[in-house]
Amino acid sequence: MSTLLAATGSLEPAARSFLSPTGAEVVFLLVGLAVLGAAVVSVTTKQLVHAALWLVVALGGLAVEFLLLTAEFIAWVQVLIYLGSVVVLVLFGLMLTRAPIGRSPDADSGNRWAALLVALAAAGTLVTLVADAFRTSWIDLTAGGGSTRATGEYLFRHWVLPFEALSVLLLAALVGAIVLSRSTSGRLPRPRAGKLRAGKPVGRPAAPAATVPSTAPTAPAQER
């Protein structure tokens, strides 16, 4: 490993021309176009489930980009977590909120044109800024920088504490998700015997439902 000072990349301006791209650059550009296209379709399509599937394409393309940037471990993590779990969760969400299969004309809100304006303005600003700032920067790609071995080394040598804190965060998120998914009526205290007063019911009228907390996925199904 070189020192931090040496790790500033190449700064020679004239050495690399945009007109003579390397092979990696060509692949990156092509995959990047695919990613961008998939993302755009994902946020504009009228079919909600298709949007999730196009998201899979975009995220998968990003995994390829990570590979091209020599971050192998992150690429696999991307595939595992995003393609494997996040998209599945999203599909679950779509199903559980009874998203219509097929085209839904009201997929976009009335805010669309304002959103487009803001997005384009932000894109223009960011691209101008980034292109102006990193016009001449060059990445010297050396293989192995993001291998599983290297990742394990830096992660458990330098980032152990944040890693552990993050696991606690994950645990909290898990508990939070479970709590949120439970039926709210289940948290009401049960009426105690002897404390009941005539003519004044304690708790919600739907007493039988309150005593049996149903799980999140089954509750909408019952209602249906």
């Binding site: 809100s109 805010n111 304006l117 803001v118 932000a122 600003t125």
Partner: peptide, 22 residues
């Protein structure tokens, strides 16, 4: 009460500020 319109205004303001600063 529409959060999206609030957010639009917020981001538009942020972009505007960035442009102005630049």
């Amino acid at each position: 009460g529409n959060a999206q319109s609030y957010l639009s205004a917020l981001l538009a303001g942020a972009v505007l500020l960035a442009v102005l600063v630049a």
